[in-house]
Design a protein around this nucleic acid. Sequence first.
DNA 1: TCGCTTGATTTGATCGATTCACGATAAGCG
DNA 2: CGCTTATCGTGAATCGATCAAATCAAGCGA
Lengths: 139, 139
Amino acid sequence: MTEPDAELLRTRGLRVTQGRLAVLGVLDRLPHADADGVHRALADDGAETSVQSVHNVLGDLTAAGIVRRFEPARSAARYERRIGDNHHHAVCSSCGRVDDVDCVVGEAPCMHADAPAGFTVQAAEVTFVGLCADCAPAT
Amino acid sequence: MTEPDAELLRTRGLRVTQGRLAVLGVLDRLPHADADGVHRALADDGAETSVQSVHNVLGDLTAAGIVRRFEPARSAARYERRIGDNHHHAVCSSCGRVDDVDCVVGEAPCMHADAPAGFTVQAAEVTFVGLCADCAPAT
DNA sequence: TCGCTTGATTTGATCGATTCACGATAAGCG
DNA sequence: CGCTTATCGTGAATCGATCAAATCAAGCGA
């Protein structure tokens, strides 16, 4: 089979290494994993690597624009592969679960806000904090 | 003169102490200061306090609902006194400057997104990342 | 007004996440 | 196949924030 991830890495000028492919594979299964989560997933797969290396790989992938880094308040940085579309996140304040949210406005969500004079908006980070279905209090 | 801040503290069931009044005063001058910024501002005023105490005070004020804590990506936690209205923030990715942004939608900004089934939205955190007027590249 | 009770502050240690520095390793090219 | 250089792995170090125990003072009642 062809390796689309490998091709993707080459396109961005990055070398194709086993560690990077493994991290990308983990992010396919865990779409909102943090650095420690990626490391644990790799360890479960039998790969021996260090948390620092995971940080290193994630940093490279982020710099190359292959993954996106976002930091929910009160949580470690998380990484995801969904880029290009500017979607939001719903974070459960009870269990920490993260879900994607597509804004109905479309690609440029909430960009219609009154930005300060001269401010150039590069990206909008929108996070909804609340309770997911599993953690919703019994009514 | 009366001390509205002191009255505010009593209303929330907190004791009125010099440290808390000082922190609130700093947040009036620096509307988006982080813990270290508050500590430095207090030091400039001649007050002798530790960074840990500032964290403690800010934590108390946050728990009491007097100040709001928000954490821009790639930055330390910041605190502000503007609460009640649900405004957003514009963060300059170059100089780190933070400005308030009033969303045109009103009090419940961007709440019209498609939340996951069963998800109860408690709060929406919206952050615009970009370049402020001072840091905008010369065109 | 004085003293007591309890909350608040201080100090120092500690933790978690991330970054930095450098030697070891392997990817990719000729 | 061998070289060059980006990448990985190991360890230490940093930064922000939290925790725990001892000291201190705000605000109550006598």
